[in-house]
């Protein structure tokens, strides 16, 4: 038997395995916290998307739920003003650098960004920040899927799954504002060793990787 701890998130009493993070404790119990970069079995959280803010009683500042270990008796609130402000600001920053063309986006129906926008009540067409998008060419060299690097949110899901189940051709390269998932020498995916398992497309939350023909996901 695994040890469990009980805690309260948004007034809901829940139980979770000891050692779990707040994020997974919440998600497993049907409480949604926006997140992009968290992977359940990762050795350590990437903590890079900066969206899963929660307020924990006894802590002065909001914390990211993916790095906070759930503790016995912990009281957390995903709807506090401070936490929501940080989540919204972070998300608006992401959206200011994401081409908004939902109507003709192949990921329209599976887009997690839209889900987060709805959850945080963020209007995509009313972003307070400057529009700063990349203008990189779309890679349509692969027969199965397209890659639009301009839509990449640098969450790392595709990179991780490609290493785990694919051929490991995807990874992060470049620095700062230019950091993105890409291939060796930024070559076309069609020219790489990719064997088209399609796992990366299923993992992508932002419509950067999309199937050419809509398939069941």
């Amino acid at each position: 038997m695994m040890k469990t701890v009980s805690l309260t998130i948004d007034d809901k009493q829940i139980e979770t395995q000891a050692g779990n993070t707040l994020l997974w404790a919440a998600l497993d119990n049907g409480i949604y916290i926006p997140n992009l970069c968290s992977l359940r079995h990762a050795a350590a959280p990437a903590a890079s998307c900066r969206l899963c803010w929660v307020e924990v009683e006894g802590k002065a500042q909001p914390v990211t739920a993916c790095t906070e270990i759930a503790a016995e008796g912990m009281v957390a609130n995903t709807r506090g003003t401070q936490a929501l402000r940080l989540a919204r600001n972070g998300f608006e920053l992401l959206m200011a650098s994401h081409p908004i063309e939902c109507a003709r986006c192949a990921a329209l129906h599976v887009c997690e960004l839209l889900k987060i926008a709805g959850h945080l009540n963020v209007k995509l067409n009313k972003n307070p920040y400057r529009k700063l998008v990349h203008h990189l060419p779309i890679d349509s060299s692969n027969p199965l899927f397209n890659y639009d690097p301009n839509k990449c949110v640098v969450c790392g899901r595709c990179v991780s799954i490609c290493r785990e189940r694919g051929t490991g051709v995807l990874g992060f390269a470049h620095r700062g504002f230019d950091r993105r998932a890409t291939t060796f020498y930024d070559e076309l995916i069609g020219d790489s060793a990719c064997e088209q398992c399609g796992e990366c497309v299923r993992a992508c939350p932002s419509g950067a990787l999309t199937f050419k023909v809509s398939v069941n996901v």
Partner: peptide
């Protein structure tokens, strides 16, 4: 190492 790892380091 996967070549992309080396490329990631070089471009960093």
């Amino acid at each position: 190492l996967p070549p992309i790892h080396v490329y990631g380091v070089v471009t960093f």
